[in-house]
Design a protein around this nucleic acid. Structure first.
Lengths: 109, 109
DNA sequence: GCTATTGTTCGATGAGCATCGTACTTACTT
DNA sequence: AAGTAAGTACGATGCTCATCGAACAATAGC
């Protein structure tokens, strides 16, 4: 069975401070990096388990919820798995250059 | 007397997460906005008192210290006043496009 | 010298949050 | 049906931090 759960907030209502706060965490930034990395070399989405993080499952779940609530990611359920992807297009339209510059910045040691 | 106190951290050592965290606060974002606003229509710097904020003096002082410690601003003392400015050039060189995109994003309701 | 003015420091307070482990739910597999 | 795999929910814990007011320090001006 394939369910579509679209709890992602409307882009027009999304606050910059919320986005910045969501990105201002090492674990969440790493999630975004991995999601961006699979955008052009994969299906553009990852299941929770495919994202490799230095924290436990429940903590990862918390961070993924934070990113989704901030409007940065969208989620899609399929069976027991949940697939996450960057809301790249919408983000770029609302906050031009933000994601790109943050990703470039995150790429630096 | 004119003192130069350069407590600003070296740009090369500055962490993206720290910068994002510093920007992820309404008050600090407003400070950055006002500093950016006076860059090309003024001396490029503001004293603490010239920055209008909806918080008390001690809180403003705390936020200014946070921005400086994150490498986003530099400070210059002159008498009893302290003048703050954006470290724009250095930031742009280390994190290209970041400040611009954040400022543009912050300009949206 | 006295008095504003400017900004910092300190202690307290209250809220938010990153983390963990355990228990639970749902779905897939055999 | 029984077991396993994938995530979520919950309660607890401890840290960080935004905020305030009051006291302090340093300088400028009269």
């Amino acid at each position: 069975m394939i369910t579509e759960k679209s709890l992602s907030p409307d882009m027009a209502t999304i606050d910059v401070v919320t986005v910045l706060h969501a990105l201002a965490d090492p674990v969440r930034l790493e999630i975004v990096r991995q999601l961006a990395g699979c955008e052009h070399s994969g299906p553009g989405e990852l299941s929770c388990g495919q994202i490799e993080l230095p924290v436990g499952k429940s903590t990862a779940s918390h961070h993924l919820k934070t990113l989704s609530a901030a409007g940065i990611t969208s989620e899609r359920e399929e069976g027991t798995r949940k697939y996450i992807r960057l809301r790249r297009k919408e983000l770029d339209r609302r906050f031009p250059g933000l994601v790109d510059s943050v990703l470039a910045a995150a790429g630096k040691g």
